[in-house]
Design a protein around this nucleic acid. Structure first.
Lengths: 342, 342
DNA sequence: TTGTAAGCGTTATCAA
DNA sequence: TTGATAACGCTTACAA
């Protein structure tokens, strides 16, 4: 069933059918209705490949996700879901590419096979081969996250540095003097993962400025690691009375370890950080934290990309989000003295 | 940069370049090398739309996921990740469509716009409009899950009915006589979600056969709901000493409620079910459960679909997985008498 | 208001 | 071993 068949059945030319569909040329009311009727009966839809070939655009977005080998975090999932949803809203499809580094076949297909009109890249590194590759191809793209040299591309990011600084300030105001940062995984930070680096920088700045003692630890993105890292922290640095974290996946493990050590939050220990809202709200007691608006991020990434696609050559735009720190119940005055574990 | 430009630079015709690329016709060693060199230098890749138009296939798979409005569960995420990964292995791209019911624009684009060579549908209902639609279009498809009338389509599913039956038998063998089933969400079950129905059927069958008292409760796919449902269960049915569940997302909440009620697993209460492995292993104590091999499911769904695509008209194939129940530490003999909450 | 025809970048048939 | 050429199904400039 192609446009020619529809034209035949409606007794018009193919171009008239095309124009009736696109509205780019006036079509008399009567023929338009006739055509629509035939189309409805035949269940016709234009062939996407033919249309893409002719128009030079695919009405499809590429979304580069971390390879499945490393299980995606809840927040990454939120990004994927919100990007897909936002794209669907404006009748755009989304092609997924699980690509970590460069030279991935699926990534190459995406950027150089003209399979998509633009690309959204997640989990950007400070130095990111995928961004370099994308730059070469002149394909519109936006990052969820930004590189070390962020001016030349469009991106949306969370201001982890600033937010962690404010978390530490909050803890310092409450009298805490020994504070730990629970970062993302060692590999991620080692590979130049932006949020990890910027959170650490913000942490160190605040610790220095407020004259505190800081210890920073990396932690894999899961509950088991969270529990283990907290145990180690207690063993090596019993003087620490508060932590700030950007590792939401570790929270359940930290909560469990806290309970196992017989510690009550926030009486014996304070905890805060930058995490997705539902993690903050589920923590017991609810976590004082900056809520990362994952859903908004995906939606605005699509907007940014649409802009780039619609008017190529538009100067890149940047959105740096610093959501307020929602005061809940997980932070309190520093305990007078270090308690022993139960 | 198109195939004509490559041909010009290599001093051959377009067809020769095409054949050099596909290998469908012999090309002399020397010209083949020359062409390859030019292609590498130019960074040429065939235009996917042109190729799809000519070949009548897109080298793309469609994956229908639940709409983002209802946040995806961990296991659903595993399916998505493993499908994408398996497809990438064989150089297939994956187009996502967030579609719950029928008549979704993105779903319609997928099935009738010839955007994909085949479709994988997740979260199949017993009566599923998407499956009906797919059947009409004669597009190859496979379900992760199966409808009430499963013979006419290819699918891969977990045998929730059988597995829950075995869980109940296991509990009965341990002397439990009052057992609860924690099912998935009310809406999901009400809408005819297969695993929910089949788990319930298996539960009722075993309860009847073993002459037990069973109570089944629906529970939303999150920790908060798990905690609340367990509290209600304790209040209304204090005689229940064990639960079987297919709702992994509720587990952390159940664990927390258990602790709050001062109950120790498995001394005071037993729990088992059918969940993804990492949930079972993270539970404290580790959960005796049938581990759903989410990664394998995605990979085999892609295999099944490839089969349908490669040889249309192939009789549908079915894979019903019944992974063994891994004996861990969350089930034990029924307590002698009902304990009061702490 | 409508029709004709060119062309998007491939692949594959038919000739050479 | 290679080259010309006709499709694939659509959109759109140009004619009428």
């Amino acid at each position: 069933m192609d446009i020619g068949e529809i034209a035949r059945r409606a007794g018009v030319s193919r171009s008239t059918v095309s124009y009736a569909l696109s509205g780019k040329r006036a079509v008399s009311e009567s023929t338009r209705r006739r055509i629509e009727k035939v189309i409805a009966e035949a269940g016709y839809r234009p062939n996407a490949a033919a249309r893409a070939l002719k128009e030079g655009r695919t009405r499809t977005l590429g979304l580069v996700i971390p390879p499945a080998s490393q299980r995606l975090t809840d927040m990454q999932l939120d990004f994927v879901a919100s990007v897909v949803e936002a794209a669907a809203q404006i009748d755009l499809d989304v092609l997924l590419s699980p690509s970590g580094g460069d030279h991935d076949r699926s990534f190459e297909r995406l950027v150089t096979g003209r399979r998509v009109d633009g690309v959204i890249v997640m989990e950007i590194r400070l130095e990111d081969a995928r961004v370099e590759r994308l730059r070469q191809t002149a394909l519109p793209f936006v990052g969820i996250g930004r590189t070390a040299d962020p001016d030349s591309m469009s991106w949306i990011d969370v201001d982890y540095g600033n937010l962690i600084t404010r978390c530490v300030d909050h803890l310092a105001d409450l009298g805490h003097t020994h504070i730990a940062l629970i970062n993302r995984s060692e590999e991620l930070v080692a590979s130049g993962y932006g949020p990890g680096h910027r959170a650490l920088a913000g942490f160190l700045e605040a610790v220095e400025r407020r004259n505190l003692t800081g210890v920073d630890v990396c932690c894999a993105d899961d509950r088991v690691a969270g529990e283990a890292r907290f145990d180690e922290l207690r063993a090596r640095h019993p003087e620490v009375t508060a932590i700030a974290t950007i590792n939401e996946a570790a929270l359940p493990g930290i909560e469990r370890a806290l309970a196992r050590h017989g510690m009550t939050v926030p009486r014996d220990f304070s905890i805060t950080g930058v995490v997705a809202q539902h993690w903050a709200e589920y923590f017991r007691p609810p976590l004082t934290a900056a809520d990362v608006p994952a859903h908004e991020i995906g939606a605005r990434a699509v907007e940014l990309l649409q802009e780039q696609i619609a008017t190529p050559g538009t100067p890149p735009r940047h959105i740096l989000l610093a959501p307020p720190i929602a005061l809940r119940s997980s932070t309190g005055p520093a305990p007078r003295m270090t308690r022993h574990d139960g």
